[in-house]
Design a protein around this nucleic acid. Structure first.
Ligand SMILES: [Mn+2]
Ligand SMILES: [Mn+2]
Ligand SMILES: [Mn+2]
Ligand SMILES: [Mn+2]
Lengths: 216, 216
DNA sequence: TAAAAAATTTAGACTAATCTAAAAAAATAA
DNA sequence: TTATTTTTTTAGATTAGTCTAAATTTTTTA
């Protein structure tokens, strides 16, 4: 099938092109911690395999078959993260790097059985939707806390930053997936936000508010 | 750490040297479906890393650190096989190739948690002992059915051949791990064996008897 | 719109893992 | 104990993936 490197490129291109529908050589290089010249080489190979649309200097997008592979890798990644948290009691900030390795286990039957074993979960530990065995998933409408007005409330349902340090910070502030919160104040000076969670009030910076997603 | 290829070589050398304490270049090549010249290259690399004892033309053995790695790969292989059968309901003839891939997931913490999750199983679906987190395991004394005399009975506890076709054949004859059997007759002409299992009598060839292991 | 800056590609080299063919060493047989 | 066969190693290539440095193209700025 596809090599580990190819799979990582496809996944990276998928994530990068969710917004603009297009990924640039430099974006891919920085997301994969590699050099632009290495990316160019790989883009040629992926284009030869008809997994991406590539015109030199113009950036790339996934073809339908490239997208199918990317989504299947993401499905595996998120299911393994769910497994690690729900079955093996890892914390949500510990599972991403492990899943980066496990997502390349190739068997589809294995992943479908794992999905069944866990009861077909809809979201991973970070709130991201898990594609089903046909690659379908609902892209929920989430807003960063920074884009919500005072007195609105919602459920914490996702994060934009998946780094351990951010997730650990959220744990400490008890701002975790599923918590109901209300925005009680927005400080004009630095755009920091005061949030009511349970019986406590917590004060978070603009940057944190930007990376914390809620469903209204 | 070590590459996937290095891990496979160490595992192969471990299995091959269980008997003679030594593995030859050609034995390794055939067990890994590769060529002798490729093996020689890798042996030099593993010797440089002090994972094997290698003198040209003399075959190789594992150093203590090489053996430690080999056993940790085998631990992972067998725990994943157990997981696949016990949790995901795969059949014992379906799990080996999957485990060949999964055994290279590097995290020791992951495997220790998996071990705990499953209740620290002692044997994999084929009856092979699972090393504990310190690499220790009891090498039980098993005898091939072909080496047992008439009227002796025992528990089927292992197989020498792990191929799907052999395991499927055993399934069909209801000769699976844990079954109590008694040897009722040995045919002198072709050394085939008649075995009592439950209320049935089954007749197996010398070759099958050779690859089926029982605890007396 | 021409010059400067940024992004991207090409050229050439390196490593890991593999291969085939040839050479060398060890084991076996006459 | 010499000749033959088998085993193992060496020599030289190849492929995937990566890198640095240089060249080229595109974008931005003046
Ligand atoms: Mn992740
Ligand atoms: Mn996730
Ligand atoms: Mn196995
Ligand atoms: Mn096994």
């Amino acid at each position: 099938m596809n090599t580990l490197a190819e799979e990582n490129y496809l996944k990276s291109i998928y994530h990068l092109s969710v917004n603009d529908g297009n990924a640039s050589t430099n974006q891919i290089a920085s997301s994969l911690n590699t050099k632009a010249s290495s990316v160019t080489d790989m883009l040629k190979k992926l284009a030869d395999k008809a997994l991406i649309n590539y015109t030199p200097y113009q950036g790339v997008s996934l073809t339908p078959s490239g997208e199918k592979i990317a989504i299947s890798i993401i499905r595996k990644h998120r299911l393994w993260e769910y497994f690690l948290v729900e079955k093996l009691n890892f914390k949500w900030d510990q599972v991403h790097d492990l899943a980066e390795e496990m997502e390349h286990i190739s068997s589809e039957e294995l992943i479908d059985r794992l999905d069944k074993f866990m009861g077909y979960p809809k979201h991973d530990p970070h709130g991201d939707p898990i594609p089903d065995c046909n690659g379908r998933f609902n892209t929920h409408e989430l807003k960063p806390v920074s884009a919500v007005t005072v007195n609105q409330s919602g459920i914490i349902s996702g994060v934009r930053d998946h780094s351990s340090s951010f997730l650990q910070y959220l744990d400490k502030k008890q701002l975790t997936i599923g918590c109901k919160i209300m925005i009680t104040d927005i400080i004009e000076y630095d755009h920091s936000v005061v949030v009511q969670t349970g019986n406590k009030e917590v004060h978070i910076s603009r940057e944190v508010a930007n990376n914390l997603l809620i469903a209204l």
